[in-house]
């Protein structure tokens, strides 16, 4: 059963690791200083959350957070492709929309995990929600504000939503052995969480006059597999950068 637990925790942790990594790329390059700071702060939270998730496994005698993050085979990662996507030449519309779709999903996921029968996970979820509250507030306010501002802003957000929506949909891809996790009372079914996520984002998008359409199963081919170890085309360069220093002298302590 520990293998099943590892799949669940890595799915949660790997998402946090890479979204934190991508958000951190905005430090020094945001549209206003206040956003450099906000993205940097959110990036720190997410990176810290990844570490805390891995630590649950470390406590069970599995690898350390650094080993999980910096010394793993590509196929052993379980992140959704959404978080591996680059920042597309610093397109703030894309960054903001990803942040919004992702943090809505986080809210829903953590809210469910609070009631998890797996005690360490429930405790951690409770703690993380206290920080996530502010991520969600930040994302929501910006979507509301920009969605109802200029035509260009609206257009950019809609384009970002069109491009990112199928990726975000796959945040709720069914995990391997998910039925065992559900039976153990660790998590509700992913499909159910997806419904709650849609309920969360729909009114805000509607208010900002932003529209999405639910993807059909046959349209999702290119976006799936993240939870099963299939990496997006963006992963290799991301991971090469992330491990550039640690891999340069594998025996060293930093």
């Amino acid at each position: 059963m520990i293998e099943v637990l590892e799949i669940l925790i890595l799915s949660l942790a790997d998402d946090e690791l890479f979204i934190g990594h991508r958000h951190a790329e905005w430090i020094g390059l945001g549209p206003i200083l206040e956003e450099d700071i906000a993205f940097a702060s959110i990036a720190q939270d997410e990176t810290g959350h990844a570490q805390a998730y891995y630590q649950i496994l470390t406590d069970l005698g599995l690898p350390t957070p650094d080993e999980y993050a910096f010394k793993r085979e590509a196929s052993a990662f379980r992140s959704a492709h959404l978080v591996e996507l680059p920042n597309f030449e610093y397109d703030y519309g894309m960054a903001l929309m990803r942040h919004f779709l992702y943090d809505a999903a986080e809210q829903v996921r953590l809210d469910a995990l609070r009631k998890s029968a797996y005690e360490p996970l429930a405790g951690l979820a409770e703690r993380l929600l206290r920080e996530e509250k502010y991520h969600w507030l930040h994302a929501r306010v910006w979507i509301q504000r920009l969605g109802r501002s200029t035509e260009e802003a609206h257009h950019r957000l809609q384009a970002a939503l069109d491009q990112l929506f199928p990726y975000a949909w796959m945040l709720f891809e069914e995990m391997p052995h998910e039925e065992k996790m559900i039976e153990a009372g660790w998590v509700p079914p992913s499909a159910e969480l997806r419904m709650r996520w849609l309920e969360k984002i729909s009114p805000i998008l509607m208010e900002a006059n932003l529209a999405y359409s639910e993807p059909k199963a046959d349209e999702l081919q290119a976006f799936q597999g993240g939870r099963h170890g299939i990496r997006s085309p963006y992963f290799d360069s991301l991971y090469a950068e992330m491990t550039e220093v640690s891999a340069s002298d594998p025996e060293a302590e930093w």
């Binding site: 549209p31 206003i32 956003e35 610093y90 397109d91 703030y92 920009l146 200029t150 260009e152």
Partner: peptide, 9 residues
Amino acid sequence: KGRWVREAL
């Protein structure tokens, strides 16, 4: 890159 954001604000 951020000009449109500031204009929107």
